[in-house]
Simulated assay, not measured.
Amino acid sequence: MKDMKVIGDDRVTSIGMGTWGIGGRETADHSRDGESVEVLRHGLELGINLIDTAEFYGAGHSEELVGMAIKGFPREDIFIISKVWPTHFGYEEAKKAARASARRLGTYIDLYLLHWPVDDFGKIEATLHALEDLVDEGLIRYVGVSNFDLELLKRSQEAMRRYEIVANEVKYSLKDRWPEDSGLLDYMKRDGIALIAYTPLEKGSLAMNECLAGIGRNYGKSAAQVALNYLIWNDNVVAIPKAGRKEHVEENAGAMGWRLSKEDRERARRCV
């Protein structure tokens, strides 16, 4: 798959697979875990190499499912993101949380993020330093943050001692363009920091947008694919829609390998 972006020194597909809410039990006797693992494996088979998870998702169960899904695939071909929850911020706590995540995944973590900011910057700084040491230990490969605004991102960059912050995962969609309006996207682009866009389809609402569907017909694409392509049009943006069903993963993959024209991208902005 040729539609790739850069995180750190690695190349990842412009569309990844999110794992918030995957797995778990619908009824007392029916588990969705097997289905969720198969969906993730299907995405890997399609060539999507980026999977996003976190210790907070299903109290670590999503990480376990990711660990199951990647078995049999060359590990070096997959880029796994996980996150430390704020209750585990701090030097020792963050290292302990990362080790627990790696155990659930059954492997090292490519990119480890601070999941949400906290008011106490001292805790953020201690956590960043812990992650730097984890890079030295080989447990994680890159350090990043999530839900950090521009001011906090800059402050966090200044706190780093040996490594760089390579990514910031934030909510970004056609409907919620705050990274554009706040200057965050432009700053990250200039600094070579990847923006990982979560909730890129606004929980499916953009997939049902008739205006976007009209634009998509010019390309033989769906409304969802237009909404995702709007985001990955930016050189430093990857999107991580939820990997809920095989057909959704296939549709998401179809958002790659082409680009909206500048005119249609502007039209898409007016659709929401």
Rank of each mutant, 00 (worst) to 15 (best):
E164N: 12
A223M: 07
E76Q: 15
T127P: 00
A224V: 02
E93R: 15
V135P: 06
E202K: 03
R269Y: 02
T199N: 11
T107V: 02
K83C: 04
G138H: 12
D3T: 12
P200A: 12
W178K: 12
G43L: 07
S222G: 12
A126C: 00
K83Y: 08
L139C: 09
M68H: 11
A253I: 00
V238N: 07
E26P: 01
L50E: 07
A194C: 15
V166M: 11
D136V: 08
W20K: 09
Y187C: 02
L40M: 15
D52M: 08
R265P: 00
I140G: 05
T107H: 14
E137Q: 15
K221V: 07
M208Q: 15
T107L: 10
G122V: 00
E247Y: 14
L150H: 04
A223E: 03
S31H: 13
A59E: 15
D33T: 14
H88C: 10
V145N: 04
V237H: 07
K71H: 12
E26F: 14
E132M: 13
R25P: 00
M1C: 14
G257Y: 10
G204N: 13
V170K: 05
D120Y: 01
S222V: 10
H42F: 10
K262W: 03
V166E: 03
L231H: 07
E35Y: 05
T107Y: 14
I70P: 01
D186F: 01
K171P: 00
E169Y: 08
I140H: 05
H248A: 11
A54K: 09
R265E: 01
R41M: 12
K203H: 12
P117G: 04
G122S: 13
G21Y: 09
L152M: 14
K246W: 01
G183W: 09
V143A: 10
E132P: 06
H88D: 08
R190A: 09
I215E: 03
R75Y: 09
V37P: 01
I80T: 10
G244R: 11
L152N: 04
E263W: 02
G244T: 12
R103I: 03
Q225D: 10
K71S: 09
E76V: 13
E158F: 02
Y57P: 06
W85L: 10
L152A: 05
L134V: 02
R104E: 03
A54C: 04
A54F: 03
E210Y: 00
K123C: 00
R141V: 05
S14A: 15
E251H: 03
R103M: 07
L114T: 05
G72T: 12
Y172P: 01
G192K: 03
D33H: 12
A197P: 00
N229A: 14
R161C: 04
L201T: 03
D120S: 05
N236Y: 05
G204P: 08
K203I: 00
E38H: 03
E151I: 08
I51C: 10
W258N: 12
R162W: 04
P117N: 07
Y163P: 07
R265T: 00
N147C: 05
I165R: 05
K221A: 08
D133F: 11
S156G: 06
I109S: 06
S36H: 11
A239D: 08
S205A: 14
